[in-house]
């Protein structure tokens, strides 16, 4: 019995790290731009399909394909910013909400046309390690480690580089940052690009462990929202912790209760946190 627990904890941890990575993308965009990115899930789904196509059409091994996904995410994100968001960035939040929602509709609409809504899967295996009933899949370990690595890189970027500091400055006060000579329009576009790149790479990583459809992003988008609230908006580390909490709930708590209660628990947590500690467990600014 104990081995089942250990297995669940490891599984929850590894999955939680990916959830965390996805949430960081959402978090960064909210923190810097005060935009609730409703196209988050759609871009995750896009990441899944990009990595799938790279793998099936060009034979690029998914973990190397990630580099391309990130580059593409940056470009697409920045493009999306200028096309859809730039003109409404100073408008009330409803406008940006609708703008990102329309981007999401666009991606999912085209995606459905091209790929239909049937499931796809990336069939790779990195083997597995077993001790008794504990079986850890290589692919899950890889996604967990990559998620940690990406979070660490993002952290260093935000705290140690000039551009990263500018992003944090913009998140704290855009006018002040502009008055320091920061091209805040570029920084906003860049932040959106990074957020999208993170969403897409999280999607790509998830695609290496689970099957997916063009609609799969929605589920993870919801999880990302819960994680952001849980971990505190604007805190990358908080998002990672929030992700792990969610992964644990899904894998460990369900040993004792029916799995169908998971959304109930998740959203109860959401409401409770909003009521009791709106800044999140590790609340704070970027």
């Amino acid at each position: 019995m104990i081995d089942v627990w250990v297995d669940s904890i490891i599984g929850g941890l590894l999955l939680g790290l990916v959830y965390g990575l996805a949430a960081i993308g959402l978090n960064l965009i909210w923190g810097v731009m005060k935009v609730i990115n409703l196209s988050h899930g759609a871009f995750m789904a896009l990441g899944m399909f990009v990595i799938y196509l790279l793998f099936t059409a060009f034979g690029i091994f998914p973990y190397f394909g990630l580099v391309i996904v990130i580059g593409l995410g940056l470009v697409l994100g920045m493009l999306t910013y200028f096309v859809a968001l730039h003109r409404v960035i100073d408008a009330p939040e409803l406008s940006t909400l609708l703008a990102t929602f329309s981007v999401s509709l666009f991606i999912i609409g085209v995606g459905t046309f091209v790929f239909t809504t049937i499931p796809y899967a990336i069939d790779i295996s990195l083997g597995s390690i077993s001790f008794g009933n504990i079986t850890i899949l290589g692919t899950k370990v890889a996604t967990g480690l990559i998620s940690i690595a990406f979070t660490a890189i993002l952290y260093v970027f935000l705290y140690k580089t000039r551009l990263g500091k500018a992003i944090r400055a913009v998140s704290m006060n855009r006018v002040a940052a502009e008055l320091m000579g920061v091209n805040t329009t570029f920084i906003l576009a860049l932040s959106f690009g990074i957020g999208i790149a993170l969403a897409m790479s999280a999607g790509a990583l998830i695609a290496t462990i689970f099957p997916f459809t063009i609609l799969s992003g929605g589920v993870y988008e919801l999880k990302s929202f819960v994680i952001c609230v849980l971990g505190g908006l604007g805190s990358p580390l908080g998002a990672l912790v929030g992700g792990i909490v969610l992964g644990m709930i899904e894998n460990v708590v369900t040993l004792q209760i029916p799995t169908s209660y998971v959304p109930v628990i998740e959203f109860s947590i959401l409401v409770l946190i909003l009521l009791l500690k709106p800044s999140g467990l590790l609340g704070g600014k970027v």
Partner: peptide
């Protein structure tokens, strides 16, 4: 109002 970056 100064507008310093409080978290830095």
């Amino acid at each position: 109002g100064r507008l310093i970056f409080p978290e830095m």
